[in-house]
Amino acid sequence: MTTPEKLESGKLSWMSLDDVEARVRALESLLVERGLAESAAVDAVVNAFENDMGPMNGAKVVARAWTEPDFKEWLLRDATSAIGSMGFTGLQSEHLLAVENTDDVHNVIVCTLCSCYPWTLLGIPPAWFKYPQYRARVVKEPREVLKEFGVELGPEVRIDVWDTSAELRYLVLPQRPAGTEGWSAEQLAEIVSRDSMVGVALVSVPS
């Protein structure tokens, strides 16, 4: 059962986490016996998810859009081709849309039905994106949820919430912060956070 302690620790599980692990170990060994898996191939896939796919890829896309107007125009018109040109097409990033934050509009992404997310650009989604709490609330009270993430938007800013209910994946193009004039794309990519590309953070210059 869910208890306040379990919720706070994030250690939710129906079975004990040890029992889940034992069951996944059993599943892996049986899939190997059926010829559907190999443990070294599982290692390779986990390693790729942990190291090669991730927000450092999305940050390169954002930084390039900030520094190359033609690329930005391409990204907003046809994000699938634009990221493909950088080698970032892949599983769960087959059909991509980029939505741009401006002074008037702030974008935020959710998948209310599961956890759809552009893996090659942003990696495995963070736990808050996958568990039901954020998914339930952000479509109904986005301003409140964003405030809890530390994003306070003025009343003049409209929030566009994108529920990614099919096979399109979304990338938020955050606003480039003031004080970064003259920065290179490499420098800019360093300050683009994962959360800013989902829309629950703004990009700021580290003090």
């Binding site: 599943l27 892996e28 998810f49």
Partner: peptide, 24 residues
């Protein structure tokens, strides 16, 4: 939203079985 989940340094897989399950 569960507070510990918001930590930006949370790893992609919080437990080793998660990555295995995903890859399998």
């Amino acid at each position: 939203v569960i507070e510990v989940f918001k930590d930006p340094d949370q790893p992609p897989f919080r437990y080793a079985f998660e990555g295995r399950m995903h890859a399998l």
